[in-house]
Design a protein around this nucleic acid. Structure first.
Lengths: 136, 136
DNA sequence: TTGCGTGCAAAGGTTTTGCATGGCA
DNA sequence: TGCCATGCAAAACCTTTGCACGCAA
């Protein structure tokens, strides 16, 4: 983004209001449409692409064949987080935990691989959905 | 698959020959085509879908917006694996390590979340690519 | 023979691209 | 004014579905 435009401001605003969530491009598009500040889908995609390129935003592959999700990178908040995504309900959990660092350290030292925690999402079942599965 | 067919055998064969790799549906399709045993894309997709349904094969979201990857589940070999995928060179590493279980246990006990190790891929930089990045 | 399997073509959904217009600096 | 940004429509993906024909059991 070289220029400041109404659209670029709005997209960033939505991302900031949803720091704790994974949004799809379409969700951003619809949110803005509903609030009476429509921005073209193409524009949403193009901004997300640029924001990812300069690491302002992170892109996550949607669990299955679903669409990709985006989220503000926000290094200071998510550095020591796991991102846990429930494959049943789709919710995203940010779990503050020193274990992630222990794990990264271990993998780096023993296996020579630098894990990028920010790109990594652990898939599984959240407490609620795990209980439901047991009952069914 | 109720019937044994030329196609089902071929697809399984490719998967077995590539136990250590993540293959896309298209790669499977092309591999078979090149070896003179063509199988329709639709058939490849349909077999993969069924193989995933009965847990013979695992499906992974392709790192970016790319296509999904498939791999033989092979419980005995991958139960205690990390799947490490290098975001630079795209290679997949299977890292045998008890840490994964420790991690899963911790998350289950402390955070009430059941991690599905088989669906989870840790993204980052492999040894080789990390070195190259340092030099540039 | 029965009914699943196959593969072409077409549809579906998401993301990208072409192009003329609009708006920031 | 110059150039990037916008957004419509169309294209380009990947994947799924419809349907007639083929083949395993």
């Amino acid at each position: 983004m070289t220029y400041k435009t109404r659209q670029s401001a709005l997209i960033l605003q939505v991302l900031e209001e949803n720091r704790d969530r994974h949004l799809t491009a379409e969700e951003i598009y619809l949110l803005l449409k509903e609030r009476g500040e429509p921005v073209g889908q193409t524009t949403v995609y193009r901004h997300l692409e640029k924001l990812c390129a300069d690491a302002t935003v992170r892109k996550y592959a949607g669990g299955d064949g679903d669409s990709a999700c985006f989220q503000l990178a926000d290094a200071k908040n998510c550095k020591m987080h796991y991102h846990l995504k429930c494959t049943a309900c789709g919710r995203l959990f940010h779990t503050e935990c020193a274990y992630l660092n222990t794990l990264s350290e271990h993998i780096k030292n023993e296996h020579g691989f630098l894990v990028d925690g920010s790109k990594t999402v652990l898939y599984g079942l959240c407490k609620t959905c795990a209980k439901e599965k047991q009952h069914s």
